[in-house]
Design a protein around this nucleic acid. Structure first.
Length: 441
RNA sequence: GUGGGCGUAGCUCAGCUGGUUAGAGCGCCAGGUUGUGGUCCUGGAUGUCGGGGGUUCGAAUCCCCUCGCUCACCCCA
């Protein structure tokens, strides 16, 4: 009789994390927490599920369409969070009286979006946000950018570039061209210039009711990325002449880059790119996204910007903010695509203790604990008294550095899997022996 | 949501214009080597050819439907 089984599978867009990716993920998260903390950010957390009315209508119609929304058993309309920024706005508005401002917090968690999965794009993915709430100066903007540059640098994932822009630049120009009532379609059209080219963008702008002359102005503005930020800034500075808001935007970009470079003690890995727009409707000033230089087609590994009005739907207090979102799942996917997911060396030495039917198991347990306490060792006791060769192969497959076998006469034999050499010692001397062997190599 | 590509062993894939028992490499298992891994040698197991229907003497191969995956658009991490 054949037993029928349920085919093991995951939902479209929902992925398992395998051990190789899991180790990398852990390392990325360690770097993030360390960097956030070193900038004074506090860890917070918000729920995965919120009232739908809290989440909907904040990030634009596209976000609403992609939101997982359902009814709970009590008949409430609820939704899975689409990002971590909108829940943060709710959090800050709700706990305003208990927080110290300017409030700096980070939040690491999964978010859910119902769009079609592709490489590096999932329906459930891990994101890590850091935000400063309560001030509108560009010092905060610069600090956020410094955090990204620092974190991405320490993650050791390869070269990256932060593409930076400021919404005030385009807003200013659009106002001068009397297009302020058509901002979203115009921004959408301009955002496509890399993909479809200036001519097609001009067509789309014409379709949005933009005159040919205005379209040329806009294309000149966004097509002005130069070899250096300074060159781009002066180029764009010329096109925004006459618009106070646009001039402010250019000045902010210039100053922010200067501040980040000062913080890093080196030129910031930032490229001023006036074509960066970003879809989320709530951004009001600085906007940016980071791409991995070796996988620019994989999409952004980080993004964010300034949003000065986000919390206004939950409170009458003015709570401007600026934040970054780092795509942990996306970074893992990029590393996987580059074949560098599992090249992370073990940060501690793995030791495997073997056993057989006659082993003194209390002695083995004591010894495992002693080795763990003796230094940077991860120690596992093979959990069954199977054939010794099997346990050796297991240790090898696991990448263990040392295989330990308790001999019948009570001495411990130590095999160094790297050199192939064997040594022995009394159990009490094993921790010291391992430290010596591991250190000497 | 719109449009393209692809579903053959655990994995990566080969199977020409339809033709007998469907293959390779890797992996896995066993032995060589009964308490000392990797290398090597020998042997072995495994497929509803994604599913359903149709054409045909005959379908992994052609047609239709369906499911799944994937890429592009859209949007973004």
């Amino acid at each position: 009789m054949k037993r029928t089984v349920i085919t093991p599978r995951t939902l479209r867009g929902f992925a398992d994390v395998m051990p190789s990716a899991g180790r990398r993920r852990r390392q990325l998260l360690e770097v993030l927490e360390e960097v956030y903390t070193s900038f004074g950010f506090e860890p917070i957390q918000t729920p995965a599920v919120e009232y739908a009315e809290i989440l909907k209508g904040k990030g634009g119609t596209e976000s609403d369409k992609q939101m997982f929304e359902f009814e709970d058993k009590g008949g409430r309309r609820v939704a899975l969070r689409f990002d971590l920024t909108v829940p943060l706005a709710r959090f800050v508005a709700q706990h305003e009286s208990e927080l110290t401002f300017p409030f700096r917090a980070y939040n690491i968690g999964y978010v859910w979006r119902g769009d079609r999965p592709q490489r590096g794009r999932y329906r459930e993915f891990l994101q890590s946000d850091a935000d400063i709430i309560g001030v509108s100066g560009i010092t905060a903007d610069a600090e956020i950018l410094t955090i990204i540059a620092t974190a991405l640098g320490r993650m050791d994932i390869g070269p990256f570039t932060i593409r930076l822009n400021n919404r005030k630049i385009l807003n200013g120009v659009l106002t001068r061209l009397e297009l302020q009532d058509r901002v979203p379609p115009v921004l959408r059209a301009l955002d496509k210039v890399d993909k479809i080219g200036p001519a097609a963008v001009a067509d789309e702008l014409a379709g949005a009711g933009v005159t040919a002359a205005a379209a040329q102005d806009l294309l000149a503005l966004i097509g002005s990325v130069q070899a250096s930020n300074e060159a781009t800034l002066s180029h764009v500075g010329a096109s925004v002449k006459g618009s106070a808001e646009g001039e402010t935007g250019v000045a902010e970009v210039r100053e922010v880059i200067e501040l980040v470079s000062a913080a890093l003690g080196a030129p910031a890995p930032i490229r001023f790119d006036p074509s960066i727009v970003r879809g989320l409707d709530y951004y009001t000033g600085m906007v940016f996204e980071a791409v991995h230089d070796e996988a620019p087609g994989a999409g952004s590994i980080s993004g964010g910007g300034r949003y000065d009005d986000l919390a206004s739907v939950y409170t009458t207090s003015r709570l401007p903010g600026v934040g970054v979102s780092i795509g942990v799942s996306r970074i893992l996917s990029v590393l996987d695509g580059l074949g560098r997911l599992s090249d992370l060396p073990r940060d501690r030495t793995l030791v495997v203790l073997t056993q057989d039917l006659g082993s003194d198991r209390p002695e083995l347990m004591r010894l495992a604990a002693a080795i763990r306490g003796a230094g940077p060792f991860d120690v596992e006791l093979y959990p069954a008294a199977v054939k010794h060769a099997t346990q050796m192969k297991y240790g090898d497959a696991r990448g263990a550095r040392f295989l330990l076998t308790l001999d019948a006469d009570g001495t411990m034999s130590v095999k160094d899997m790297e050199s192939g050499e064997r040594a022995s010692a009394a159990p009490a001397g094993v921790p010291a022996l391992l430290s010596k062997l591991a250190g000497g190599a």
